[in-house]
């Protein structure tokens, strides 16, 4: 439930924040893409519903949820007013970014999550730049600006690490029903099972 609320917030607020606040700041080099950062940070924390049973299915469902979050946020960034590029460009890039992030970073330490986030952010920024140059005729120098990419990669790694390290009472979403009864019991080694799942 919490994950759904956060996802809706990301889709609604992140493009507005990007356009109204972040792009107006005078940062050296360029501006981070905070929609991409939000997708990368949140995608690993989306949980599949309790009906997804075994491990492979859970991973696939989580990947689907990440892809859907990325698609929705990317489409929002595509159509939020000042945007004047081909619709679907950011949706495609962020859909793939959310999917990869959810599959690769869901079960790992903070360091692994930060590394995955950085790699995915770099890949998505480069892919987005190539698409911008090919589809919309953006000059290559502007499409692949290193300053903006550096901001995005750094911020993505930082936020992903912070998300993984935050003091956690209980994970996002419902506990799986099979483990619901043992929540909080210290004898159950799977009490914080989402790290292992």
């Amino acid at each position: 439930m919490k994950a759904i609320v956060l996802s809706v917030l990301v889709v609604l607020v992140a493009p507005v924040l990007q356009v109204a606040v972040v792009n107006g700041l005078s940062l050296p080099g360029g501006h981070p893409d905070i929609v991409l950062v939000a997708v990368i940070a949140l995608a690993p924390h989306l949980r599949p519903g309790p009906e997804a049973g075994g491990l492979p299915e859970r991973g696939a469902a989580r990947g689907g949820a990440g892809a859907f979050l990325g698609f929705a946020a990317g489409l929002a960034a595509d159509i939020a007013p000042p945007a004047d590029h081909t619709i679907g460009r950011l949706a495609l890039v962020m859909c793939l970014a959310g999917w990869v992030c959810a599959r690769a970073a869901a079960d790992g330490t903070a360091g692994r999550r930060a590394a995955v986030a950085a790699v995915v952010a770099l890949g998505a920024t480069l892919a987005g730049g190539v698409l911008a140059a090919l589809l919309d005729g953006t000059p290559w120098g502007a499409a692949l600006a290193p300053g903006a990419a550096a901001w995005t990669v750094g911020l993505a790694a930082l936020v992903a690490a912070a998300f993984a390290l935050r003091p956690r009472r209980r994970p996002f979403g419902r506990m799986p029903r099979s483990r619901g009864g043992s929540r909080g019991g210290s004898r159950d080694p799977y009490a914080r099972g989402r790290r292992l799942a």
Binding site: E57, G64, F68, L75, I87, G88, A91, L92, C95
Partner: peptide, 25 residues
């Protein structure tokens, strides 16, 4: 649900590509 979970990323990527194509045309 399981099948949807597997197919969703490919499906969404296809929708994105379709959007790009439609917006270009």
């Amino acid at each position: 649900m399981r099948a949807a979970g597997r197919r969703a990323p490919a499906l969404l990527a296809l929708v994105s590509v379709a959007l790009i194509a439609a917006d270009t045309l």
